[in-house]
Amino acid sequence: SEIVVAMYDFQATEAHDLRLERGQEYIILEKNDLHWWRARDKYGSEGYIPSNYVTGKK
């Protein structure tokens, strides 16, 4: 599975969105859409994140 790191904070506005915290790692579950990826955080929460807010883990 692909691990990404959040470059920016993202506040979830929709129920299906996942909040991003800058510097935290997330697991990508689905990339069915170019701009919104389904991800899981370290607490096990899942939701959609803006793909341009994250970068591949170095």
Rank of each mutant, 00 (worst) to 15 (best):
H16W: 14
V5Q: 05
T55L: 09
V5S: 03
D9N: 10
V4N: 01
S1A: 14
T55V: 13
I49Q: 01
A39D: 03
N32E: 12
I28L: 08
E2R: 09
R22A: 13
W37L: 03
Y53H: 11
E14T: 14
V5G: 01
I28F: 01
E25S: 09
E21F: 10
A12V: 08
Q11N: 13
D41V: 00
S45I: 12
G47T: 04
L34A: 14
F10K: 08
G56A: 15
Y26S: 00
I3V: 14
E2Q: 11
F10G: 00
T55D: 08
D17G: 15
W36D: 02
P50T: 03
S1W: 15
E14N: 15
G23M: 04
S45N: 15
E14K: 14
H16M: 10
K42T: 07
K42A: 09
M7P: 01
T13A: 11
I27S: 06
D17H: 15
E30R: 04
M7D: 06
N32K: 12
E2W: 14
M7A: 05
T55S: 11
G23E: 06
K57Q: 10
T55Q: 11
Y43G: 06
E46M: 05
I28Q: 00
D41Y: 03
V5P: 01
Y48R: 13
T55I: 13
G47S: 01
S45T: 12
V54Q: 01
G56E: 15
I28V: 12
H16K: 14
T13E: 11
D41T: 01
Q24E: 14
E14S: 14
M7R: 09
M7N: 07
R38M: 11
I49N: 01
R38L: 15
Y53E: 02
K31D: 05
A39T: 02
S45H: 14
G47D: 01
S45K: 15
E21V: 13
A12G: 15
L18G: 03
R19N: 15
A39L: 04
E14H: 14
K58H: 14
E21K: 09
R19Q: 12
L20T: 02
K31C: 09
Y26F: 02
D33W: 07
L34T: 13
E46Q: 06
K31V: 04
G56S: 15
V4F: 08
R19A: 13
D41M: 01
E21Y: 09
W37N: 00
V5T: 08
